[in-house]
Write a protein that binds this DNA or RNA. Sequence first.
RNA 1: GGGGAUUUAGCUCAGUUGGCUAGAGCGUACGAUUCACAUUCGUAAGGUCACAGGUUCAAGCCCUGUAAUCCCCACCA
Length: 977
Amino acid sequence: MKYASSYEPGEYESDIYASWEASGIFNPKLTTMPVDNDGDGVDDRQENLASNPKVFSIVMPPPNANGNLHIGHGLTVALEDSLTRYYRLRGASSWYIPGADHAGFETWVVYEKNLEKQGHTRFEFDRDTLYARVWDFVAEQRGNMELQLRALGASCSWDDLTFTLDENVIDRVYTTFEKMWNDGLIYRGEKLVNYCPKHRTAFADIEVEHKDEKGTLWDLEYKLVEEDSESAISKHVRGSDSHFDNGHGRESDTEISGRVRLNRCENDDREPSTLRNGTSETSLIVSTTRPETLFGDVAVAVNPEDVRYKGLIGKHVRLPLTDRTIPIIADEHADPEYGTGAVKITPAHDFDDFEVGERHNLERIQVISEEGKMVNVPEKYYGMTTEECRKQVLKDLKEQGLLKGEHKIVHSVAHCYKCGTILEPMLKEQWFVDVETLAKTAIEHLENDEIKFHPENKKKVLINYLKNLKDWNISRQIPWGIAIPMFRQVGDASDEPDWIFDRRTHLKEIEKAGVRYERDEDTFDTWFSSSHWPIVCTNWTEENFNPYYPLNVMETGADILFAWVARMIMMGLYVTGKVPFKEVYLHGLVLDEHGQKMSKSKGNVINPMDLVTRYGSDAFRLGILRGRSAGMNQAFSENSVIAGRNLCNKLWNISRLVQSIVDEESEDNISKHLRGADSHFNNGHGRESDTEISGRVRLNRCENDDREPSTLRNVTSDSYSTDNMGEDWICREINSCLEQVESCMQNYRFAEAVEILYQTIWDKYADWFLESQKLYKNATLLKTTLTSLLIALHPFAPFVTEAIWQNLSWTEGFIATAKWPARLEYDPISAENFENIRIIVSEVRTTLQALPGANNAKKYNLYYDNDSLVDDNQLLIKTLTRVPAVNSLDGAPRGLRLALANHELYLDVPEKVVKQYKDALTEKILAVGRELDALNLRMSNPNYVERAPEHLVKETKDQIKEKESLISRLKTQLSII
RNA sequence: GGGGAUUUAGCUCAGUUGGCUAGAGCGUACGAUUCACAUUCGUAAGGUCACAGGUUCAAGCCCUGUAAUCCCCACCA
């Protein structure tokens, strides 16, 4: 290869992606049409599926069409694409289906901001106009995100890109909705929903952000209506004088504030004596954080067990600032220990009160409009904002002496997760899905272990969530989304209008049987449509067998386990009767390098595209996978990307070296005879015959290989033989690497797979094997081994491996569709001998470094005595240690004896230097002595010898022998000094 | 209140059913350098595996408890 001495990703990546895409290799070959060659009525692929899985399918969680990819998308692609590429290499028909999300509310917010910038508001346009305008807006933006996915190397099938507003998606959503409607799972209900007055839309519970905030709790006095108050009170006094007074008129603010929450104190301080302070006996005190909603009050609730108020239940109080009287009711909701124990009930503006209202069949009086203005209130307050109204109400109450206390509290407040506006609980007619049976079915399938979770514990979490799931509000009051296909008769303003289902949502008004109907203006919650994602992406239909459904795996963020994964499972089961995926892999958040959540306000956001530009796509992918495990929020720093970049560069240079040796050898072959005659190919342990060597000729085709010949990529038609220990050793190491990577992929342990490849390529292949190959050039083996490693790394670093592949002289086609490497044949004894050489070389290096002075490697020769392994590998040891010479000992031992138990090796170091080494030697002896003691202690334990597995006991015994021998040799050396 | 996690080297993390001297990357220190790569090579230092008990021949891993940190859900008139 005539290439630069460093890998420049920018020069290759976009061309490589373009050629992949043009070749169509990312589009799977299997169709969803039935195949039944044996005519037994069952799809043939279904028959094969269990025994020989040939299909891998995965869908991309659709990124927002309107935006740029963030670091989380980067992680998602790295994970999903490495799986896809891995299974493609394993011979599966891999289908990675890309998507784009209209992201209903998300996009809406972006678009609305845009409108505002131009000085418009959405309320100037009708819904259909807005829809069209947003469509254009999104279409403009969409290409951006798709380019970025390509830059990340996502090997997805672009022809199959699914947009969440595609016709087939809407179709499927309507089909499901119709089915649910007919099954009675859809209902329209007036419920309290979290409503953002700014965006003027309702949210699902899951979209609400709760924050703890400081607020004020006001005590308001509601006067008992005279006629029944007196008798009630007197009766109550007689019945239980000790606790009665508590709920009545407080004399001073001081006292009141002292009492709030006081009752929660340990050891019950509700002793009669402390609570029997003066009472007015003519009113109730309620506590509220929202005085302005009092106009919507329809009752005051007290706890039925609360002895203070027992006698008041059924009586009435006068609602301040109005003419109304409202009843005092008994309900568990009232907590005797909170505030005064009496709570005003406003069903139209509070979630709990709504439920109380349901239980007691109370009226719902809406006093705040959808614009956030006061309505249904006395003239004076009409049209005020809630804040203005609150001030006015407090002022007026104070003037009338009804404001009895004020306390600072901390309570959690619901906010719009986009704009931060405080959400208003709002009474609205909405479409709901009755989730009870859906959730129950989902739980059954989960408990039946039909879906495997990574991390495992998320399954429990999900079941727990499903068990407590409330009905799902699926309507949103924004134009951008899939229209709800429900119509009602024009002019029908009755309480229970007749709704009909119809797919013609492109029309505002339709006619059916001579009756005119108008469309409901709401759109679906995005999760309602995205819960169909596996179904719509794979084109699942009722009619045809689809080998891609269920998906092999659903990979997405742990943060949308509830919002998305849960709903996909419910919907998948409801629509297809099958779980939508066999496994779920959830990734955590990518945090900044200090473990902090990334956010614009903190300024610590890392842009993945920026890293791709600077270090390359592969470097980014390797970097973001490193040190990351399922479900965990983990830090990410540029360092890991740099490490990835370095690996790519290393691999590049490895390939340059290998190619240069291959080139050199092929030139040699022209002038020389067969390599077998070459004397320097010494394997160190004496091969007996040519027969034996040729017997080890690789058999590296998979046994179960049944791919079509045309898809096979023959990496080389040559067979290799291993001619020295290093060659056997690297085959062994590559086999072990492959085995581990395979197991890691099976178990979704991406970081570990990358780590193993990194070490194998760098530490083993480059630092040991290639160094030894500078002496023993085995071109055929070099080709085979490099090919194996390139393919194994390809799922994680697709670009550099492809760039190299395209430039090697012996490869053809794309590495992206190469065949996963088979195990290599090797001689295990020979491989193990190389391990011995490594130990010797390391010991020489360590000792040389520890000796006083610099540049020791060049100074001292190495001598060996009576050691055939070293004798056979003098040249290799000399090269790896860089000592000037490795010789057989001529005469008596001299210099420094190396701390090796099984080899007698000396560094020819002058006596003076050896003496300086004395301390280090002494320390070494002590260290080995400590290890020996530990081993002896273990053996002296009869229980260990008796109960531990035999091989461990034997191992310990061997080690003791070895250490003893080492110590005695070192001691001899020391004594000579 | 309910649920789920985390705690191992200076930093970020591995460590599968308990089994050899607990690993990696980055960082640090020292040394090297024509001969694929300074995005390099070699060597080293650095650990009471949060703490306290327990089970076991053997515990980072299993059990009990404690502490710290984090996340989710519910509630907060």
